[in-house]
């Protein structure tokens, strides 16, 4: 790979932050649980990007390894979350997250 111009890390971090904030915005705004999960995925990808950028900065594989763990976590989380979504849909017949607010005082 030719490297005439390398990418400044700041910019990549900026992108990561932007993605994270966008994901957060999505979590706060949407009421449909599927969209909330999608937003969470976006946030996770943002942090993964940050890790990869850090690994590229130092030229070490640790960043990619963290990315793989994030991947594993995301996979497990999605599996269970979608199971919960199915239960929610069956019990409440809706995907509105505010329907499942019985754990209050």
């Amino acid at each position: 790979m030719g490297n005439a111009m390398t990418i400044p890390v700041d910019l990549v971090m900026l992108l990561a932050i932007a993605l994270f904030v966008i994901g957060l915005f999505g979590v706060l705004t949407r009421r449909n649980i599927i969209f909330i999960l999608i937003s969470i995925e976006v946030m996770m990808n943002a942090s993964a990007l940050a890790f990869i950028a850090a690994g590229a900065r130092w030229g070490q594989p640790d960043g990619q390894i963290m990315f793989m763990f994030i991947l594993a976590i995301a996979a497990a989380e999605v599996a269970i979350a979608l199971g919960l979504v199915i239960q929610l849909a069956r019990r409440f017949n809706t995907l509105d997250i505010d329907a499942a607010s019985e754990l209050n005082d």
């Binding site: 706060l28 505010d98 754990l103 005082d105």
Partner: peptide
């Protein structure tokens, strides 16, 4: 206890 209303978006 007002803060514990069970709504997930509120917690987020």
């Amino acid at each position: 206890v007002i803060t514990q209303n069970g709504s997930l978006r509120w917690y987020v």
